[in-house]
Amino acid sequence: MKLTAHSKGELAFSGLLLALGIFVVIEAALIPIPLASSNVGPRFMPHFAGGLLILAAGWTIIELFRGHSVAPEESELTDPTQRFNAVRVAILLASVIGFAVLLDPLGYLIAAPLAFFGLLLAFGARRWWAMALVSIVLPVLVYLFFAKTLGIYLPEGVFAGIL
């Protein structure tokens, strides 16, 4: 039997899940059992969950070797036959990580527009002026509603004291 690139990926992912299951079960041995517990203790559920994961991931692997591969679902926006677009994914990840890193020091009103702009790039937007405009307007509206009206705390960052 010859494995396609896709089923190799499926196999690797299933293997990873199998490893996770084994890890969960092994790590369960390190959970301290408190003196007070008289019945099933804190290790029961880890054993159950890890065991189920080992069985199910193992079963998936067996299925794969029998040729039962599952193709990703198609949608009107996505096409599984496309090659993995590493550039776009990198831009997306950078936008998200950038948001997380910049949120506290620079504030929501800097971090969110930057992230939004990056995300627009990642999803293939082209018109720069529209991108820039929406990237600024939308986060400001969100800020006004959630932070200023409902009082949900969003970091002010560089605008601290001004707003």
Binding site: L17, A49, A56, A57, W59, E63, V70
Partner: peptide, 19 residues
């Protein structure tokens, strides 16, 4: 979905995250 084994694997991952 298409494969019961994968469905159960997904449940198990959920249980693990819940731990």
């Amino acid at each position: 979905g298409a494969s019961a084994a994968r469905g159960f694997a997904a449940v198990a991952v959920g249980l693990v995250i819940g731990l």
